[in-house]
């Protein structure tokens, strides 16, 4: 090990930023093991809150709701998103630019506008607020992300791939499903990951479009947070952060090995 002990202001700054990012998280995690309801003084180590969390039926129910909503959202966002990306990439059309702008609108506006817009819309057509309305809302703001990612991958594609398939007698649809879709694999996976997380995480749009049965985890956490500090939320948050961390480590580790493989 070579230890160069020179002073690097940028490095110190970055460590400062990381400290700022992580200090609250560490405190949060520490208090999830604290044997006191009030979150102030350290009274001893306990797993009590994890135990309580597991048996907290409303939270567990909303966790299941969240997972279900995120899965359906991912599924439909991918179908719709990949199709529209292909449309944008492959076919020229007089309204194309306008259409693209339209579908990107949710990205460019504060989420609350989409939330109230959809609330007003669902109320006007007397559509019951519930799973379906939340899923529709989620797909609407996830779609732009899918399209951006897939379009980026398509722009790097060799157009002769499709031509070759067509020359060999495939119909355009066959060519798409047999040749283009497999090529899009990595983009589809990363869109799926992003869509899933966005949907799982969303609070603002869900807040306006949810109904009695479709309470998601963020909505429930918000409600509990408003009511006061509760170590069960700390426990839940700790699990959340751990899972996020593990998934990210997995992705990074995989990316690293993939990169190495392609380097060879």
């Amino acid at each position: 090990m070579t230890l160069k002990n020179h002073f690097d202001p940028l490095k110190c700054w970055t460590w400062g930023v990381l400290l700022f990012l992580y200090f609250p998280i560490f405190v949060l995690i520490a208090y999830s093991f604290n044997d006191s309801k009030l979150n102030v003084v350290w009274k001893g180590f306990t797993f009590q809150w994890y135990h309580d969390l597991w048996r907290h039926e409303p939270l567990m129910q909303s966790a299941r709701n969240s997972l279900w909503i995120a899965s359906v959202t991912t599924f439909f966002s991918l179908i719709l998103g990949v199709g529209s990306s292909w449309f944008f990439h492959r076919y020229r059309h007089p309204f194309q630019k306008g259409l693209k702008k339209m579908i990107m609108i949710p990205l460019a506006l504060p989420e609350i506008l989409l939330g109230i817009g959809l609330l007003v819309f669902f109320a006007a057509i007397q559509f019951p607020l519930g799973f379906t309305s939340v899923i529709i809302a989620h797909i609407t703001f996830c779609l732009p992300f899918v399209i951006l990612i897939v379009l980026a991958r398509l722009s790097g594609m060799d157009p002769s791939i499709e031509e070759a398939a067509l020359d060999l007698g495939a119909t355009p649809l066959q060519a798409f499903f047999r040749v283009i879709l497999p090529y899009l694999g990595p983009a589809v996976i990363s869109s799926a990951l992003i869509t899933f997380t966005l949907s799982l995480d969303d609070f603002i749009v869900t807040y306006f479009t949810t109904g009695p049965q479709s309470q998601t985890l963020p909505i429930r956490i918000f409600g509990m947070t408003k009511v006061g500090l509760n170590p069960i939320i700390n426990a839940l948050s700790t699990i959340f952060i751990l899972v996020t961390g593990l998934i990210l480590i997995f992705i990074f580790w995989n990316k690293g090995t993939l990169n190495n493989r392609s380097d060879k």
């Binding site: 997972l67 359906v72 991912t74 694999g185």
Partner: peptide, 16 residues
């Protein structure tokens, strides 16, 4: 890559 795509789709379908 292909098998990864399929496994993701499969998981989604099963959950659906």
């Amino acid at each position: 890559v292909k098998s990864m795509v399929w496994s993701v789709l499969l998981v989604l379908l099963v959950s659906l």
